[in-house]
Design a binder for these strands. Structure first.
Lengths: 148, 148
DNA sequence: ATCCATGCAAACCGTTTGCAAGCAA
DNA sequence: TTGCTTGCAAACGGTTTGCATGGAT
């Protein structure tokens, strides 16, 4: 029941960003493409600080401010997704590697697992109908412990 | 399909806190009961700052630190629940007034609506079985816009 | 009398903002 | 050349922490 999809070649996501910037009238700066490339080399979740450290280690000169700005753009063109687990730093991940999924977080270790259940779509439809709204995205997180 | 339940008399929740503090060996300070009483007079969501202002308006001398400490205790004995919507201040609500429910948040206005769909329990069971875990709580939030 | 809990203020930390310098258009 | 974007550092805001005082036990 868990869906997966492959990461497309980097050229493809780069083209998506290029078209998006074009359409919105934003500048195609080298920083934006470098950041996208770095993000697409990361498997799993990362936060801004992770990204900052990675790019510094790669001897690339970036500021956290630019990382915050650029992730905002990448969110807007759906190249990444953002998760707010608890009150800590926001977690991001590229949105092509895995299909749609939600999260389970181990209370003891903080470890994150993923799952997907189609019935959530039925719930979404129910909510849209009863509250008379159009849902654009959601966040579902289960918290608990591993069974022995 | 939406479930509701009535707020029990204040004496009942006070007894729950009293028993909890007793069992845990924590002191039964007047602050803790006053804060509980204030919280149970609030309908809907509130954050620490809301609570602080309310108590100040009622001429009660509290510190934010004590509010943070006490809400931690009230969470632990299940007299309140905590929601982390976005990266902003945590929202709390007494856990007796409404039954189990989840949230829809209007992207434009920030307005919060509630709903309940039993199929979520089936999803929870599915996740427990496939990931081999025991789930203690969850957070489900849909984001979207009102239909015209 | 103990020592946990409180009030206050400072520290903390992720995120946002202001601004001068840089560079895409 | 124009003015959006960047890097840097300071500001911001919710939460946590340190510490002296106070009060439950």
């Amino acid at each position: 029941m868990k869906t997966t999809s492959k990461t497309p070649p980097y050229e493809e996501v780069e083209a998506i960003l290029r078209d998006y910037l074009e359409k919105k009238g934003h500048r195609k700066t080298p920083e934006r493409f470098t950041i996208l490339k770095e993000i697409y080399s990361i498997d799993g979740h990362f936060d801004i600080e992770d990204l900052y450290v990675r790019m510094k280690n790669n001897k690339y000169r970036v500021s956290r401010a630019t990382l915050y700005n650029t992730t905002e753009l990448l969110l807007d063109c759906n190249l990444i997704v953002k998760h707010q687990f608890g009150h800590h730093s926001a977690q991001y991940e590229k949105s092509f590697q895995y299909g749609q999924h939600d999260h389970f977080i181990d209370i003891d270790t903080g470890e994150v697992s993923e799952f997907w259940d189609e019935r959530l779509e039925e719930i979404q439809k129910y909510v849209e109908d009863t509250l008379h709204v159009k849902i654009s995205h959601h966040s579902l997180v289960f918290y608990g412990k591993k069974l022995p």
